[in-house]
Design a protein around this nucleic acid. Structure first.
Lengths: 200, 200
DNA sequence: AAAAAATTAGGACGTTTGCCCTAAACGAGA
DNA sequence: TCTCGTTTAGGGCAAACGTCCTAATTTTTT
């Protein structure tokens, strides 16, 4: 088999295993077994575990960027685009209830390990934050766009965390609905001076 | 030294190490070194790592219960009590930015490991959820009390998670303020039928 | 078909892990 | 002072970890 293809399969398998088992708890042996290659062969493609992690983060970044681009093409309304983001919580509900948010859990674990690549992983968050900020800006939220983006990111993280702990689908549904409602209130047309206090 | 005292010191050290390094990454050797006892002596007090974890969870539960009880004594106004909860994010800001939420990160890690004690750890969340629910009930939120409690818990988790990743004190400040504002809107007197849509 | 390059298999390295044992040191009561 | 239960020290276990090497095999090039 071509090296590129094997490498690609390793990255995909490692991506899944890092997500399901965590970085620390996923081992070379796990990767090799998942791709059905020998450990020695594995070493041919990746010299160190950190190199695997770097490749996985890169892969996740590419996937997310592609997803954001697709949302931009599917919908030219920034509010609808943001709703696509919110709905990830529903689309990936099963996995999130089982393993949490792939981005958040990775960043948290790397922070505890004080891992060299923790800032690389944080780029996954930054990617969403900046994209959301742009959508809010296009929505006309002006200098609040950045804060609103972080607020939404915060809520999706919180929901993912509690969904994971409590395995409560109704809770997820409720909070997703609330996020949609909240978003509807952020359109400048309805954000009168009096209602500003209700922005969160 | 008395066994009780040594055991207590082990639990406190393990509590800190589990928090700062994560469950998987904290080893017997780390505990023993932190308490300055030999590994053999350590084994005298705790046979398995799981036993240490169980003791740490129990210890954390006791601490949190004591904290909640103190808030109840300090303040007989349920809204003020809830504000005490929100302000943990400020009080523990430094640690949270470095290591995340002690409860949330533990639950997330144990979920990924599919650890036998993950439901025990979840009791830490349940403790806060039920306490918050009671405060909201006393506030007169009726059948919404439970949802509001989960919503607040969700937000504190989300803030802790992003605070950990982005190390942004201003973000924390902003979201804590928003949570206080949100809380003020949950008093039934201001929750007219028209404003119900703004509840989150 | 032969030679060269790319890919694979399998084992072995030194370390660290959680766990366990034995024997020595300690401390309180007889 | 002697005894006996409690606490400690230190070593050692098998397994798993990340890493590395060499030799065999497959694929590509000539």
């Amino acid at each position: 088999m071509k090296a590129d293809e094997t490498r690609r399969r390793i990255v995909i398998a490692a991506d899944r295993l890092f997500y399901e088992q965590g970085y620390e708890n996923a081992s070379f042996a796990d990767f090799a077994q998942a791709v059905e290659i020998s450990r020695g062969n594995f070493y041919y493609h990746f010299k160190t575990k950190d190199a695997v992690l770097a490749a996985v983060i890169e892969h996740r970044l590419d996937e997310r960027k592609a997803m954001l681009r697709q949302w931009e093409q599917e919908d030219d309304n920034p509010a609808s685009r943001i709703k696509s983001f919110i709905n990830i919580l529903i689309a990936n509900q099963t996995k999130i209830m089982a393993f949490g948010c792939p981005v958040g859990t990775l960043c948290t674990e790397l922070a505890k390990l004080d891992h060299a690549l923790k800032s690389e992983a944080a780029r996954l968050f930054t990617l969403f934050a900046e994209w959301l900020e742009q959508q809010f800006a296009e929505l006309g939220c002006g200098d609040q766009a950045s804060d609103l983006a972080m607020h939404l990111l915060m809520r999706s993280q919180g929901v993912a965390s509690l969904a994971n702990t409590f395995q409560d689908a109704k809770f997820v549904r409720r909070e997703v609905d609330a996020m949609h409602q909240w978003l509807d209130q952020q359109t400048p047309s309805t954000t009168t001076k009096d209602m500003k206090r209700d922005q969160y």
